[in-house]
């Protein structure tokens, strides 16, 4: 089995474990199905989008092919060094002989500027872009099974709570600001937001 085949197999297993409902089977979120309570729901969304748009998450949720670097030591956000990209095959795992997993292992380097790590380190699919997206754009994406990995909102919530790569955002290693809150707090915010009808901001 080739290197890429092994990575993709592992990724598919992870995705299936995280989202047992396939895209075509997942019910689209319908604001009419649940009474939408914007007063209750929007403050919860604000907590959620503060996480999703945080650099620890958004730097690898990009629309183009290039992960970003940012933080106190980097000045302005910049493109990942070493010509790293999504990969000619579009897998998100990088290119032949220079996969994300050549440097990003299953745990963080203890060294400042050493490579952060979590299992199956890779770029999110382009349709899940959050970097430089507005709150409304991210909200629309996260509710859309066509663009969220075929997940219901309950599955989005458990994915955020349980996925090791997502969880890295709150324990990002030395020199990096963690995403706000915690995985469990974000899980509960998504549950409350969904219960309030999952309202999105106007812009």
């Amino acid at each position: 089995m080739t290197v890429l085949a092994r990575l993709l197999t592992a990724a598919v297993i992870t995705m299936l474990a995280a989202s047992p409902v396939h895209a075509q089977d997942a019910p689209a979120v319908d604001d009419d199905a649940i009474a939408v309570d914007r007063e209750k729901g929007l403050p919860e969304w604000d907590k959620i989008v503060a996480v999703l748009s945080h650099p620890r998450c958004a730097n690898c949720h990009v629309e183009d092919a290039y992960p970003r670097w940012s933080g106190a030591h980097y000045g302005t956000t910049r493109i990942h060094a070493f010509n790293i990209s999504r990969g000619e095959d579009g897998s998100g795992f990088g290119n032949a002989a220079l996969r994300c997993t050549s440097c990003h292992f299953s745990s963080n380097s203890s060294k400042l500027h050493g490579p952060p790590g979590a299992p199956l380190w890779h770029l999110a699919p382009a349709e899940m872009a959050w970097w430089q997206k507005s709150s409304a754009e991210i909200c629309a994406q996260i509710k859309d099974p066509e663009r969220n990995g075929g997940r219901t909102l309950d599955e989005v919530a458990t994915h955020v709570r349980d996925d090791p790569l997502v969880g890295w955002g709150w324990v990002p290693g030395p020199g990096r600001e963690p995403a706000p809150g915690s995985a469990d707090e974000t899980f509960r915010a998504i549950e409350r937001w969904a219960a309030a009808g999952a309202p999105c901001p106007a812009d």
Binding site: N83, S85, E88, L98
Partner: peptide
């Protein structure tokens, strides 16, 4: 049979 781009993508690290 790698192209120049393949080489750049693989060796830039």
């Amino acid at each position: 049979d790698p192209s120049d781009d393949d080489i750049d993508n693989a060796m830039a690290g």
